[in-house]
């Protein structure tokens, strides 16, 4: 089932300087899609268009076959949870629990119920011991997990991560990646759209859309996208470590195509002399 459908989307901040040019794609329910691209490729603008923070110049966005317009935007926003790049600039409450509560207050959830929900989702992201902590006492990764808890607590069908890991340290990054995997296990129908320039993170997704200069440059499974060195080079993107390793081993005459992760490659490699 199509969850998000974008048709011929165009957008420009300044006239005659289009940021998004005739972009069309479909995202299916329960899939995990990454949009990869460099700064200025239009990928963050795309996220703001999808949730109606910006209005497109041309083209249509359908969420669950419902066209995004001024009238439907409020209803559609209820289905989408958005996590932004800067952990500080999306922390609204004074403490962790107040921040998770912010979205719930907007939805007019009863006070008695709120506490239960906050506890549940704080536990989900592993922040249950920090409920009364102020943002200044949390690390970037912890703040970002709170932001995810805030988005999840509203029961969205789609989560959009707008470079949610780009300002985090490696530990924070891997925590968020793990959390994404767990979220998908919890709720298989949750659609995740991750906007990123981290190829390692994009490699984990079901499908990758590469944006370049406002257009879709490539679309497909991560293995297809990342196995083609020429395409990656032309887009100025790196190869994920594991793909790079496989590629180099292949050029040395060792075939590890069937191995899925580093452990499996090690299994192939250690008996060799």
């Amino acid at each position: 089932m199509k969850k998000i459908s974008v048709k011929n989307l165009c957008f420009s901040y300044v006239k005659d300087e289009p940021i998004v040019k005739h972009v069309s794609f479909n995202i299916h329910e329960g899939s995990y899609v990454s949009i990869v691209g460099h700064n200025g490729s239009g990928k963050s603008t795309l996220a703001r268009l999808l949730i109606g923070l910006l209005a497109p110049d041309d083209g249509e966005i359908y969420i669950d076959d419902e066209l995004l317009t001024n009238k439907t935007v409020r209803n559609i926003r209820k289905k989408i949870g958005l996590v932004f790049q800067n952990p500080d600039n999306q922390f609204i409450g004074a403490t962790v629990e107040d921040d998770i509560a912010f979205g719930l207050e907007n939805r007019q959830i009863k006070r008695e119920k709120m506490h239960e929900i906050i506890e549940k989702f704080a536990k989900r992201v592993g922040m249950e011991d920090f409920l009364d902590k102020e943002p200044s006492r949390l690390s970037g990764g912890q703040k970002q997990r709170v932001a995810i808890a805030g988005a999840l607590s509203l029961g969205p069908e789609i989560i959009i991560l707008d470079e949610a890991t780009s300002m985090l340290d490696p530990k924070g990054k891997s925590d968020i990646k793990e959390l994404i995997e767990e979220m998908r296990k919890d709720n298989p129908s949750l659609t995740i759209l991750s906007i990123t320039h981290d190829v390692e993170e994009a490699f984990l997704s079901d499908e990758i859309i590469i944006m370049s200069k406002g257009e879709i440059a490539f679309k497909g499974k991560p293995e297809e996208v990342f196995s083609n060195r020429e395409v990656l080079k032309s887009l100025n993107l790196e190869m994920p470590f594991i793909m790079d390793l496989k590629d180099r081993l292949k050029s040395e005459g060792i075939n590890v195509d069937k191995s899925k992760d580093l452990d499996e490659i090690a299994e192939v490699l250690w008996p060799l002399k």
């Binding site: 600039n89 609204i92 907007n106």
Partner: peptide
């Protein structure tokens, strides 16, 4: 911040509950 607040459904004119 205002984008984040809007994305989480904040509308100052609407009724909100209190935590």
């Amino acid at each position: 911040l205002s984008d984040a607040m809007e994305a989480r459904g904040y509308n100052p004119r609407e009724k909100r509950t209190r935590y």
